[in-house]
């Protein structure tokens, strides 16, 4: 089955422990004219509030920003959930933020970003879950799967910590299990 980029409106990526270097490498290899917005929700250490976007921007081929509330989701941008806020995707293709309580000990919570993206984009969404030491994100991935989005789980063999991908694999069988390089190639080869 060929996967056409025109069938999709956005990519969402969730990751926790170990995912920073994976995301960083992926963004360094993604082609500069990649036309879908990439929305990333990563757990981060509480004391590391700033610097994440800067360090990703040094390597990334696509500009990386932390969205503000109600910002429009635009192609050709990478969005990272800001520290201490949950990041949601609304029906009108904008972001909304929330400071409600932690979910799975996390704010931002990957489940929230992924499942709100699934609600808004339905089948026109590619969801990717990366390495992590927490089950947050598994339910969100399942939502994407249920709404017929395309789901990719990082191959546990290539994960620093397998809890997050494993929790996802326990819930359903994704469309693909891939190494970080394979994920980047998959995205770059979408036509």
């Amino acid at each position: 089955m060929t996967v056409s980029i025109n069938d999709y409106k956005a990519i969402v990526i969730g990751g926790s422990a170990g995912s920073f270097s994976v995301v960083s490498k992926m963004l360094a290899k993604i082609k500069p004219d990649f036309k879908l917005p990439i929305i990333i929700c990563m757990h981060r250490l509480k004391h590391v509030r700033s610097g994440l976007v800067d360090s990703l921007n040094i390597k990334s081929n696509i500009p990386v920003v932390e969205p503000f509330d109600k910002d429009k989701i635009e192609p050709g941008k990478v969005y990272i959930a800001p520290s201490n806020y949950h990041l949601f995707i609304e029906f009108d293709n904008t972001f909304s933020l929330s400071t409600e309580g932690v979910h799975n000990h996390s704010r931002p919570a990957i489940d929230y970003t992924l499942s709100s993206a699934a609600t808004s984009f339905r089948g026109k969404l590619i969801g990717i879950i990366l390495t992590g030491a927490n089950k947050d994100g598994a339910q969100g991935m399942k939502q994407i799967h249920t709404k017929n989005g395309y789901t990719i789980v990082q191959d546990p063999k290539t994960c620093d910590i397998v809890t997050m991908p494993k929790a996802t694999l326990d819930l359903f069988t994704p469309k693909a299990i891939m190494s970080p390089d394979e994920i980047t190639n998959f995205l770059n080869n979408l036509e």
Binding site: F88, I89, E90, F91, S96, S98, E100, Y112, S115, S116, T119, S120
Partner: peptide, 9 residues
């Protein structure tokens, strides 16, 4: 209210 978030709550 922002629909997606109030509906979820």
């Amino acid at each position: 209210y922002s629909e997606n978030s109030i509906y979820r709550r």
